[in-house]
Computed example of a mutant assay.
Amino acid sequence: MHKTEIKKELNKYHINSTHEKILRRINENPGITLCELTKGIELSKGSVSICIKKLEEKNLIQKYGTFDDKRVFRLHPTKMGKDLCSRIKLMQILKI
């Protein structure tokens, strides 16, 4: 039952469970890079990049460049992204 509610919550933002998994990882590790993010996820860098772009378009994360290497971006959740992760975590705890 609670998976259906979580899916409804994700649908409000037009994202899926893969996007949520990546958003959760960014939320748990603010400042994570794309390379760090792809470790331990069974997705290619290209697939993760597409998910990041979608999450950025939905204003759930922000990318910040680094000073030492302009090709490297640090990923941070926005307030909206943090709030979504908190709601989903609460649903999972309460098994809604």
Rank of each mutant, 00 (worst) to 15 (best):
R25K: 15
Q92D: 06
I61S: 08
L37K: 00
N59F: 11
L43C: 01
M80Y: 06
L10V: 11
K79N: 14
Q92M: 10
H19P: 05
L10M: 13
L90R: 14
T66R: 13
N59E: 15
H76R: 12
G65D: 11
I22V: 15
T66M: 11
K54N: 09
N29C: 02
T78G: 07
K8T: 09
E57S: 12
K12R: 15
Q92T: 07
I15D: 02
T4V: 12
K79P: 09
L10K: 06
K95M: 05
N11H: 14
L84S: 03
R25D: 01
G40Y: 00
M80E: 15
K53E: 04
N59L: 10
T33F: 06
S86D: 13
I88E: 00
K45Q: 11
H2I: 05
K89T: 12
Q62Y: 03
I15R: 03
E5T: 09
I41L: 15
E20Y: 15
L37A: 01
T66C: 08
L60M: 08
G46T: 07
S47H: 12
H14V: 10
K82P: 00
L90H: 14
I15V: 14
M91W: 01
K39H: 07
R24M: 09
G81H: 10
E5D: 11
L37P: 00
R87L: 13
K79V: 14
C51A: 15
P77D: 10
E36M: 04
I32N: 00
G81V: 06
I32Q: 00
I6N: 04
S49P: 02
S47K: 13
E42D: 13
H19V: 05
L43S: 01
G31R: 04
R71T: 12
M1D: 07
C51M: 09
E5W: 06
C35A: 07
L84T: 01
E9T: 13
N16G: 15
C51G: 01
C85V: 15
H76V: 10
E36A: 08
K89M: 03
T38P: 01
L37T: 00
L75P: 10
K12S: 13
